[in-house]
Design a protein around this nucleic acid. Sequence first.
RNA 1: GAUUCCGUAGCUCAGCUGGUAGAGCAAUACACUUUUAAUGUAUGGGCCCUGGGUUCGAAUCCCAGCGGGAUCACCA
Length: 512
Amino acid sequence: MFQELSEQEELRREKLTELKKLGINPYPAEEFKINVTAQDIKDNYERDKLNYKDITLAGRVMSVRDMGKAAFAVIQDSTERIQIYVRRDDICPGEDKTMYDIVWKKLIDLGDIIGIEGYVFTTKTGETSIHVTTFKLLTKSLKPLPVVKTDADGKAFDEVTDPEFRYRQRYVDLIINPSVKKTFEQRTKIISSIRNFLNDHGALEVDTPVLQSIPGGAAARPFLTHHNALDMPLYLRIANELYLKRLIVGGFDWVYEFSRNFRNEGMDRTHNPEFTVLEFYAAYRDYFWMMNTTEKLLEKIAMDLHGTTELTVGDKSISFAPPFKRITIMDAIKENTGIDVSKMDEAGLRAVCKQLHIEIDESMGKAKLIDTLFGEKCEGNYIQPTFITDYPVEMSPLTKKHRTEEGLVERFELMINGKEIANAYSELNDPIDQRERFEEQVKLMERGDDEAMFIDYDFLRALEYGMPPTAGIGFGIDRLCMLLTNQPSIQDVLLFPQMRPERKPEEVETQP
RNA sequence: GAUUCCGUAGCUCAGCUGGUAGAGCAAUACACUUUUAAUGUAUGGGCCCUGGGUUCGAAUCCCAGCGGGAUCACCA
């Protein structure tokens, strides 16, 4: 393989050779036992100085300040950055100064990973540091790391902000931008918090198929693939809803899954082709119970993550303290436009949309018009967590009809910061009604609605055996993470967001 | 998919109405045994995203690609 090397890359390869000549393996195999982390030292040293006499620690060299016969460097382990102090006469007590003069000063570069032994002390400028007695190269780095310097106030210089660089080489982004790492640690914390909540309440985590022959449970364009042995098309799932409901039929009372879903649609600040949704379904519950449960869950996540329910997102303050506002979609439209559309037919709704300068087209039915009206004029106004309830039946083909309101269903969407975070309903468990709803979807499809759903006959068969009354919900985990970690783009809460390849596929080397 | 902005050294960026490339950091060499955006002196480093075109001459102007961001459309 031909690789064009920069001057600095050539040089590091030469250093590799020099190290080997000195009998130093730049990629040693043996375990390097650490007994402390940088975070631990920073948190506890001042209070408990005695415990930091014989420490071993490993990390990446992030900066070096060479002072001749001594040097300060900063190394970064998985937890933090800490300053180390390397003095020639301590590293090399005898006559042979090779380890300091050659190995440390000439052959160790920024980005190399080293293991150190030493003791903790405080410098005369007051910085907690490690006085190194011996060090060992653990991994030689062959590519120069972008250098970001930070001053005493935490102000960063030459910070790497280029999104393309950061997303394509996330490993570098994680090394040089500590806040990025923190965001992903928070993401994991959010997911554990949810998992703990559900497990503590007796829910069962399950796995259902990602490869499906009928992409059901949502209205979206799927990815298509092919199974060779079966010689049949398969779709990557757009949702797992219908499988989780089959499990409720099977006798589980509360199941959940963090479902990686795939939709073959546009990408932008809030959409990635693969994304994560938490869905859960609880038997013998309804959507009111689900609203109460959602409030408790979000309160817990906020507390676990930030220790408070009062969050700042962008320039807004958002409170996750229950109860959240609850309002029907019709009242929400009335609240935001002053127009009562609850009794209107399709023609009336069309007139209202025109009056409010909302773009509509002929394929839109009554429900779609209401949805559009809400999306255009209301959605963005609900900054504080708000349950929007009782949607028109036509746009909710898997939802139980409202217990009292004709033409509506028992559904809610949770809006936070003007965006939909969760979608939930009392699940439709009447198999005859469900069959009719699917058939309605087919008619919509024929009318030109390309988002209409496929019919899943096996799912209908399951419902015919009897599914208890059930409440279900889907949370957009990526968007929830954006909200709770205050990130404006979905790419900043996905470790490896989808990107076009850097090179054309035919230029990428393939395995023989 | 549409519109728009961007692509120059390892990184962050200058580079004028066209005259063949610059800074800071990083690197290399030397000095310096408690510095902290360490400092001082010297040195090297470029397919200026790619391909066409205009021109005596293109990083610069024009066209077409490729990649990215933002806005819009679709969607969660």
